[in-house]
Each structure stands twice: as structure tokens, then as C-alpha cells.
Design a protein around this nucleic acid. Structure first.
Lengths: 225, 225
DNA sequence: TCAAAAGTGTTAGATTTACACCCATGA
DNA sequence: TCATGGGTGTAAATCTAACACTTTTGA
């Protein structure tokens, strides 16, 4: 091959996914035991190599589709991790992505098939290579996004109660929130629509179910939580 | 070589730098004419390939040192740009970094030697490959950083007037700011120290020079502008 | 009937914004 | 002496934070 850049060296490029889920009141990350050498058996994020015929973003989508069977996940880049020795085997640069999934949509058989576990942030074990650092940076970025753009709904079912939404924000911010102030702010955002439906699973009285109306949001509403 | 990952393909990895400078009242970016094929002669960010014995961050530092002779620039990652066809020649993934330099510290002979130009954001030409997109994303990130952390001082001389600082924030935010409110907020941040020195170049009366005191800042002060 | 979660407003304090004049100096 | 940029305070409006009781219903 007589390419333009042949005097320069190439690297392996991988993607690693920080998969966030929310369950009841805890923010969780999906991790598994590494299936290949080096590092076989260590706790690790799920990842894969970027192929020559796909963009880096596409590689992350492909890897996530393999894992979850889901195609339209909310996914954002955390950044490139490129220390020389970050991978004990070879020179591999990795681009980390964080992903939001609604845990209820995720087929638990797939989780078991890949031997993955949902772990609370507070219980995060030591992970392979620099994956703990990736998780920390992903957290920083997702916290900012969550308070700044209407993406929380990707971690919840299509219909959710305000208590669920509040619990999610409490988990993300790591602090308790005032119920009345929280609801006041939600009420100001018309794109968080109250439906006629009632959820009776969480209480005897039942709580109204809400949904996110993207069309209304796109009409130029402001988000802040 | 009997490596672990040999069945996967490798890519070229480069870094590209969005070099921000500030001059009087304009935020500028340093760009040049591309010196190699493909794309020779097109306006382009300055960049280089990542070597096998250096981290991606180190590659960016090296490239910047080549260009500016400066070693301790403020530099942050924008992200990885990885479309398959982003480079018309070969598969190259690039990690973009934005950088702040104090224009006065930058040897203008070096600028000329590399045939680089400071261009205002509003006059940005069409750049090689996806470099315009890199600039846009860098801007978004630097704006957030500037209003959130005390990094403005990297774009200014060690001693600066409040008018200079305000002009810089006006350029970054793209709006005029109220002088009294701006100064009130600066005064609340003790780590922006007034010195005894007076700058007479900008006015007849002369303006007090200020400096950023990192030690004071690290003692847990809050920044917001 | 009572336990458990849902739902609802007001007020004080803090923050933000708008706004106009005097000062010091060199030309 | 005057043109130029440097420097200063107050008041109204808005936003934020703290706070407690009533409702509904299944067990």
C-alpha cells in the first residue's frame, strides 16, 4: 500500500461503554468480567474494536446493539483515553461513551448471557485498565447533561411518576431534593406532560404518570433541573 | 508479532489543535495552510500524528511545542472525530484539543515560519476535512469552561486590566456585559488580586493591573463569570 | 383505622439586573 | 480644557430555598 501516511505508526482503536441504568432509587452501571486476554476475568466495561469500515460512533452503536439488542440508545462521547500503557497487552487507544438505557427495556437474559451485572456507583469495584477513570469522567459529563438537557427520560420508562423522576435526580446529584420545589419546576416545563394514567404500583393512592413530549420541547422550551 | 489483538485492524491516529488567542477585543483561532497531501494548501488546524511511544495528550503537547515553543499551555480534549471518510486520503481518526495561549508570549516569527494566521471566529474560512466542526465543538466546551473555571488568565498576560478581562468575557459570551456588575463579581473573587501597578497604555488615566492568584483560588474559592 | 406515598403554596432571603455620574490624565 | 477610558453604589425585580399539612386507598 502506497498510502499518504505510511511513515507514521498506527494504533488499535477501541470503544468502551459506560452503560447507565436507574432502578428504584439507584444509579447503576453495567459491567462484566473481561472475556479475553490480557486481563481475562477482571471487572471491565463492555467494549470492542473499531473496524476499518465504520465510524467510531458506529462502532459504539454496534457494540451496544450486540449487547442489548437496542438500536437507538442515548449515547455521548466521554473522550479518548490514550496513555501508552493503558492496555497491558498492546498499544490501544480507546474512546469512551456513556449510554442511558431504560433498565426495563433490557432483556435480562442477554445480561445473563454476557454475565453482566448492574452495580451501584458506590459499590464500583476496581476495573480493568483505566476503566474506573472512564466511569468517573462519564459521571461528570452525564451529571452536567442531566441538569442541562432533557435526557433523564432515557433512563426511565416512557411513562413515569414525578417521584421516580425526583429519585433519579437525587441519585444523579447525590443529594435529597425538596419535593415541592422539584414539582414546581417540573410544572413550569410544559413538555413534561401529565397523562390521565395512574400508576398504582408504588402507592395505594396511585400517582399520575407523566411523559416527555419532544415536540413541545423542540418548540424552544428551556430545561433546568 | 503475535499480539493479542492481531485479528483487528489498526488506524492512524492524529491530534488537531484549536489554538485560541485573544487580542484587544476579539477571540481568534490560529490556522494555516495544510502542508501535505491530501488537501495541500487548504486552510486547516495544526495537527500531527500520534507516535507509538507517546500518549495522545503527549502528542498534542509535542505538536504544540513544535509550533509555539511553549510547554505549559492550557489544553483540554474536545473529543475524538472518527468518521470513516473524514480524511480524504486514508482512515485517520483524530483527537481534537483546544488550547489557550497568551498571544503576547507567542513568537510571531514562528507564526510566520509556519505561515499561520490568527483569524476571528466570525471570519473563519472553510477548513480541511471536519476541522470546522472541531472548532465549533471546541468553542462550546471552552465557553463552558471559561464561565465555570478560572482559565481566562491563560488567554491574557500575567497582569491584566479589568477592562481586558471584561472584553475577553464579552468576546466569549458574544454579548456586552455591564461594567459595574462585572466588576462587582470580580471583586468578590479575592483570588483576582489587584496589584499596585498601573497600565497606562490603554488610557490616559491608567488602569490598575490585576493578577490571578492560584494559591488563593485553591483554598476553595468559587468561580463564576 | 391507619400506614404510606401523593399532592399542594407561601414567605424570607439571596441573587441578579438595570442604570448614570465623577475622576484622572495627556494631548 | 476636553476627550477618553477608569472607576464606583443603589434599588427593583427575580429567583431560590425552606417549610407542613391534607388526600387517597389498600391492607
Amino acid at each position: 500500500m502506497t498510502g499518504f501516511y505510511s511513515e507514521h505508526s498506527k494504533v488499535w482503536l477501541s470503544v468502551d461503554c459506560i452503560i447507565f441504568g436507574f432502578d428504584e432509587s439507584q444509579l447503576k452501571v453495567l459491567i462484566g468480567r473481561r472475556q479475553m486476554d490480557p486481563g481475562r476475568g477482571e471487572w471491565s466495561l463492555y467494549g470492542g474494536f473499531v473496524r476499518s469500515d465504520e465510524s467510531v460512533d458506529d462502532a459504539a452503536h454496534r457494540v451496544l446493539f450486540e449487547l442489548t439488542g437496542m438500536r437507538t440508545l442515548y449515547m455521548r462521547q466521554v473522550g479518548a483515553f490514550g496513555s501508552v500503557d493503558r492496555d497491558p497487552g498492546e498499544r490501544v487507544v480507546s474512546v469512551a461513551y456513556y449510554v442511558f438505557i431504560n433498565v426495563a427495556d433490557y432483556d435480562d437474559r442477554l445480561r445473563k448471557e454476557y454475565a453482566l451485572e448492574w452495580v451501584n456507583l458506590s459499590d464500583m469495584p476496581r476495573l480493568y485498565s483505566d476503566h474506573n477513570q472512564m466511569v468517573q469522567e462519564a459521571l461528570k459529563k452525564m451529571r452536567l447533561k442531566m441538569t442541562t438537557e432533557p435526557v433523564a427520560f432515557r433512563l426511565l420508562p416512557p411513562l413515569f411518576t414525578l417521584t421516580q423522576l425526583q429519585k433519579l435526580y437525587e441519585a444523579v446529584k447525590g443529594e435529597e431534593l425538596d419535593k415541592r420545589n422539584f414539582r414546581k419546576r417540573v410544572k413550569e416545563m410544559e413538555f413534561i406532560e401529565k397523562t390521565e394514567l395512574i400508576d398504582k404500583t408504588g402507592s395505594k393512592r396511585g400517582a399520575s404518570l407523566y411523559r416527555f413530549n419532544k415536540r413541545l420541547y423542540d418548540e424552544g422550551k428551556h430545561f433546568k433541573l
